[in-house]
Design a protein around this nucleic acid. Structure first.
Lengths: 243, 243
DNA sequence: TAGTGGTCTAGACCACAGC
DNA sequence: CTGTGGTCTAGACCACTAG
């Protein structure tokens, strides 16, 4: 099939080294769609691994929807269409293809007392201070989304500069704040006048909304987000894997 | 903690019996939010299972977002808010709470030649016959969605009656057609005049759209779906689990 | 220090698909 | 029949958390 390089002295788990290299091979096309990969036993013998270790690597990719296993048959790379194809609008295509990095403009950043709604979402009491900020996201020079966030005030220190240069999730990671579980709700509604101005669309135009609530390992609420996306140039894509 | 009953003569895998009973206990509240469950070693000793078997059961629930594991600490049930809480609109609440079964009205059901778009989505050639049907879904007496489907013509035999009584996915299951991977794209746009009539909303009102492409184990395209949901009473909810 | 989950080994038997 | 993935065992050592 192809060669993997495993470093047993690395702190990176063997199964993870393997699954990463397999995933790369699939995404770059080194292993083609529909092609069968070597069997679990083959791989484990060739690299001196136990079968459960190899199996864990493969299972991760099955869960990601990149591989399909069939008993008695083998493990295949899913077909190309399976990996990307719900029809694309041309504008969406253009955006995705444009190598321009998205940019961010911070509209607001301040500490304020939690409204009843925010308090409920962050699992704190009403009136407690929360950090609130509001950003507009641009891609290829076009405004794409308005993102509003609320965080417990004592969680992290943010500046306008850091938010515009680095991105919120990267900033969290640097503070070792790890989001583990998020609940999302995706809906649609008409843009408000102020939203339509920021996004450069007509008032009342349909927009996509995403409300998200994020938690860490311990169940502590990390973030409440409330976003509005232009529906003419954006959509949410997901891949579902059954079983 | 609590008792599980394992049947070693059952064809149902032990890890699956265990994870199902654990999931029930969590969902019914028999194990409360935030509570720690027994350790992997405890459970394996108590029921005469190996640790990997117990681990597989627990891992499944971690992947579903019901449990959180922390090294050196233990495994806890995620907090309640984590499981359900992005704010609910009252109308959405009402719909979810109403125990009325959704009903379906089939508007169209016929075989037709595949358009270029449909052919591309089903991985067949343009003009080949495809089965097309269009349904309107009602919940609590309110029209909720218009669902349009295209299938390879030779896949399954459907009647208006079976679609209205049974549901499309159940019908597929009865024919042992198993959807394994689906690509979805969720967007928003303005309702067309005909859509607005069917859904009982004003023309141009924002609607949620979902386009889906489904595949089975072998990578064969099973179904193309193109749905329109009323955004005033519906939203898509998802839970993401990192790592 | 004690206990937890994270990783890994070296086997075993089974169900299922294809020949 | 052979070979595949699906399940399961009985251990082992490690990294991390908490007291």
């Amino acid at each position: 099939m192809l060669e993997f390089t495993l470093d047993r002295r690395s702190p990176v788990p063997l199964y993870y080294q393997l699954s990463q290299q397999l995933e790369d091979a699939i995404r770059t096309g080194a292993i083609k769609a529909g092609e069968r990969i070597d069997t679990e036993v083959d791989i484990s013998e060739r690299y001196g691994l136990s079968r459960p270790t190899v199996r864990q690597a493969i299972q991760d990719l099955v869960n990601k929807g990149l591989l399909v296993r069939r008993r008695g048959v083998g493990t295949q790379v899913v077909h190309n269409q399976t990996r990307r194809q719900v029809e694309l609008t041309s504008l969406y295509d253009d955006l995705a293809a444009s190598d321009q990095q998205p940019t961010t403009h911070v509209m607001q950043l301040r500490t304020e007392p939690a409204t009843a709604e925010v308090a409920a979402g962050l699992n704190i009491t009403e009136g407690e201070p929360v950090l609130h900020f509001e950003r507009v996201r641009f891609v290829a020079g076009e405004p794409l989304a308005i993102i509003r966030n609320w965080l417990p005030a004592d969680l992290i220190n943010l500046t306008v500069e850091s938010l515009e240069n680095t991105g919120f999730y990267e900033l969290l990671r640097r503070e070792s704040i790890q989001i583990r579980i998020a609940n999302q709700r995706i809906g649609a509604r008409a843009a408000t006048p102020s939203e339509s101005k920021l996004l450069g669309i007509r008032s009342g135009a349909p927009v996509l909304t995403m409300d998200r609530q994020s938690f860490d390992d311990t169940g502590r609420a990390i973030e409440l987000a409330n976003s509005v996306y232009r529906s003419d140039i954006y959509a949410f894509e997901t891949t579902l894997v059954e079983r």
